[in-house]
Design a protein around this nucleic acid. Structure first.
Length: 785
DNA sequence: ATGAGTTCTATTTTT
DNA sequence: TAGAACTCAT
């Protein structure tokens, strides 16, 4: 092939139409290491996917030679989806996925070399914590001094620095013990055939590092490696990438790193922004391409973002610009209390909605999850549908995890984590005492719990044997069944389904178990196996194309759909959001808003101590990360941006007095529109005066008397007439004082009806479930006699 | 085994 | 304040 001629011809490819000069440069960059500094809203995903498409179209690489790495499943899916609309190629040949997803794919193909069982299972965060907890217990250590979760972080931190227990520098007793726990934890995982998230990365890295043949195979195979969100990579991930494409060698391989140092907000989790600068140096990047043209926000919003972030030192340097015009200035509201802030949000949201904006185009952002409560209850009481991100995800729900534990035991009975989760759920007369005996015996003999049951004497032992018999017979019963049938069978024989059928509030959990069956069905349909599921690359697989299963790279052995599904469940916990109201206001932390965009954004709780958070304010780096977080928040907005802060806020059960965030002083005055009088600024101590006045019992009057009339905004605003509840007696067949039925809360008595139309709401006493306010536009209430 | 009572803790968390 | 995790009594 003649790349130059192809490249010249491809300049006219329809793919490249409508790209700006910087985007074009990034898409058509020469096959050498390149760094793309992609600002918020600069069309980064489009550049990434277009580049892959262009490389393929110009024949510079075949699908098997492409690897694209992301951090989230969502990003990977989006890339895959966009590519499949752009290309006639089979996208399955490419390695596109998350770091962990690709590591899984790699380890499944080389499980023997990696010293793993073929059906190894992946521990999620909570599995990891409980596994660590067991180690600490077995070592008879004080759980106060060695908090399982923290020890888990320590272990993950070591792994992310590439350190095995023997590599950790020990300088004090505490660390010595921690390393001991780490070592025992490793043994335990190995014995049980499970790996945690960090292990997926480290194990793959070590295999590549220590096995030249494997390493060279992949180096030769992947001609083009693209990495998204490079600023979020940790030390190990960068080292992992170097294994695929080592720096300082010109082999015609290209590593394209795309990132934005200004959006690095995960340093606390081990992300190293410094990897960007290191990359530029170590790979001798000749040209850094900056995508600074923003296609998302109006001028005032970008001015604010640029001005704020310019306060940070050690930036790679980037200024967003737009052709969209200035737009509206940022509205700033000072509220007397968190309650008043929420009330103001309600008014603003309703006015936007009346102005024709979709509710899902409105986002309310906050620094910490605890702030959502006040806002939620205000929204709830106003009958405005909303959706909170950050709740329990589907595969993390207790009942789902129980079902998965049974399924895991079918595949690998030595998985003690799963064993302990369900050995007595539903209850089988196996108590703590019996389990202690079992664990001691297992530890002494170096066997798994499952292998040890017969050694336990007495009634407890008999019950344990009954449990393993149940698992064994279920395994036999499910031989040859489809994945759907296996799960249905397990739900029945385990007694899980029956348990939730008789449990008084098991209905919802039963629904989730149904949903699990559906998810499995969808997984089988969608992945179809042999494709991207467990992800054995098709060109590496020698085995027969058995439908519904993936053959192993070396042996041609068939991997069961069940193992694939269990892997899927650990690697992708599902949507991180509560019940999906179609037309709902979006509530989330600033962290979870990263990567999203909305027509209207409210940044709330902009108070010193909260945002920037007090725990981050002490050191320079912490404050800079808070500033980047604020930068991320600002750049989420397309058209309208508002910011608010409170003088008083309920925190840890106490009313605290706050002053406005220093970030207000770092934004351009001309881009702000103060809805309340601007006060003296950061550090004025005004809130403390207010507090003092309040404590004297004089409240606001004292303040006004002291000549601070401009602080009238501190008075609770009167409820506007439009907001005054309209009380009625009857609504759609419902009558005050009569009975109603709700699908979740059951029967109740209607106490009050307020509002009309979309705002209509009802207060109902559900007895055992208490008295609740319900939005009639959302809640299904039916009258009963 | 279950429920009531007690104590502790509270920043963010892509996999 | 509120929730989770735990203890203790039934």
């Amino acid at each position: 092939m003649n790349p130059d001629a192809d490249v010249a011809a491809a300049q006219h490819s329809p793919l490249l139409k409508n790209l700006n000069p910087e985007q074009l440069a990034a898409v058509t960059a020469a096959p050498e290491p390149a760094l793309i500094l992609a600002g918020a809203g600069s069309g980064k995903t489009r550049v990434l996917t277009t580049r892959i498409a262009w490389l393929l179209q110009t024949g510079q690489v075949s699908p098997a030679g492409v690897m694209a790495v992301t951090f989230t499943n969502k990003a990977a899916k989006e890339m895959l989806a966009r590519l499949s609309t752009m290309l006639p190629f089979n996208v399955r040949g490419m390695w596109i996925g998350t770091f962990h997803g690709l590591c899984n794919r790699f380890l499944r193909a080389h499980w023997k070399l990696a010293h793993l069982p073929q059906a190894f299972q992946i521990l999620d965060a909570s599995d990891t914590t409980s596994a660590v907890k067991r180690v600490i217990k077995a070592m008879k250590l004080d759980e106060e001094r060695f908090v399982p979760k923290q020890v888990g972080w320590f272990i993950a931190g070591c792994k992310e620095d590439g350190l095995r227990p023997g590599d950790v520098e020990v300088r004090d007793d505490q660390t010595r013990k921690l390393v001991e726990i780490y070592a025992n934890y490793e043994d335990q995982c190995q014995r049980e055939g499970v790996v945690d998230f960090a292990e997926l990365m480290l194990r793959s890295y070590e295999l590549l590092r220590d096995n030249a043949a494997v390493r060279e195979h992949y180096q030769h195979r992947f001609r083009h490696i693209l990495v998204d969100e490079f600023q979020d990579t940790n030390k190990l991930q960068y080292a992992w990438l170097k294994m695929f494409c080592p720096p300082g060698r010109d082999q015609g391989q290209s590593l394209l790193a795309v990132g934005d140092d200004d959006q690095s907000i995960y340093a606390f989790r081990g992300a190293r922004v410094g990897n960007m600068a290191d990359f530029e140096r170590e790979y001798r990047v000749r040209k850094v391409i900056k995508l600074e043209q923003n296609y998302r926000s109006f001028g005032h919003i970008l001015d604010a973002a640029n001005e704020l972030i310019s306060r940070n030192s050690q930036r790679l340097g980037k200024t967003l610009r737009t052709d969209a015009g200035q737009g509206e200035p940022i509205r700033v509201f000072e509220a007397p209390s968190d309650f008043a802030e929420a009330q103001w949000l309600i008014e603003e949201v309703q006015s936007l909605y009346r102005g024709g904006m979709d509710r899902q185009q409105i986002a309310i952002l906050y620094r910490s999850n605890a702030q959502s409560r006040v806002i939620e209850s205000a929204l709830f009481n106003s009958g405005i549908p909303y959706r909170v991100y950050g709740g329990l995800r589907f595969f993390e729900r207790a009942e789902v995890k129980h079902a998965l534990a049974y399924l895991r035991l079918l595949e690998n009975a030595n998985d003690d984590t799963s064993f302990l989760r369900v050995v007595n759920f539903p209850t089988r007369g196996i108590g703590a005492k019996t389990l202690e005996t079992l664990q001691d015996l297992a530890k002494a003999s170096g066997r798994s719990l499952y292998q040890t049951v017969s050694a336990v004497p007495g009634k407890g032992g008999a019950n344990l044997v009954a449990f393993t018999n149940l698992i064994d017979s279920t395994r036999n019963l499910t031989q040859g069944l489809t994945l759907r049938e296996i799960i249905e069978q397990v739900l029945e024989t385990s007694g899980l389904a029956d348990f939730y059928r008789t449990d008084k509030d098991g209905a919802e959990r039963l629904e989730n178990l149904d949903e699990l069956v559906n998810a499995a069905e969808a997984f089988v349909m969608q992945e179809g196996f042999g494709k991207n599921a467990v992800g054995l690359p098709v060109d590496e697989v020698a085995g027969p194309g058995t439908p519904g299963a993936v053959p192993d790279a070396e042996t041609g052995e068939i991997m069961s759909p069940l193992v694939a599904f269990l892997t899927h469940a650990s690697l992708e916990a599902g949507d991180n959001q509560a019940q999906a109201g179609q037309d709902a206001v979006q509530l989330m932390t600033v962290h979870s808003a990263k990567g999203l965009e909305f027509d209207a954004v409210f940044i709330t709780g902009l108070e010193e101590g909260l945002f920037p958070h007090e725990n981050a304010m002490s050191d320079h780096d912490g404050l800079e990360e808070e500033r980047r977080l604020m930068y991320v928040a600002i750049t989420r907005a397309r058209q309208k941006l508002s910011m608010s802060f409170c003088q008083t806020r309920m925190l840890h059960g106490q009313t605290r007095y706050h002053i406005k965030s220093r970030f207000f002083d770092e934004l351009p005055e001309e881009s702000l529109k103060w809805l309340t009088p601007r006060n003296q600024g950061f550090g004025s101590g005004f809130a403390r005066e207010y507090q003092a006045a309040w404590e004297r019992g004089s409240g606001l009057k004292g303040m006004v008397g002291a000549g601070r009339v401009e602080k009238a905004a501190w008075v609770e605003p009167p409820v506007p007439a439009s907001m005054k509840p309209k009380v009625s007696e009857e609504h759609g067949g419902l009558r005050v004082g009569k009975g109603v039925f709700h699908t979740k809360f059951g029967e109740g008595v209607l106490l009050t009806l307020e509002g009309a139309g979309a705002d209509a709401r009802a207060q109902v006493n559900f007895g055992r479930h208490g008295t609740k306010w319900l939005a009639l536009s959302v809640a299904k209430l039916t009258p009963i006699d």
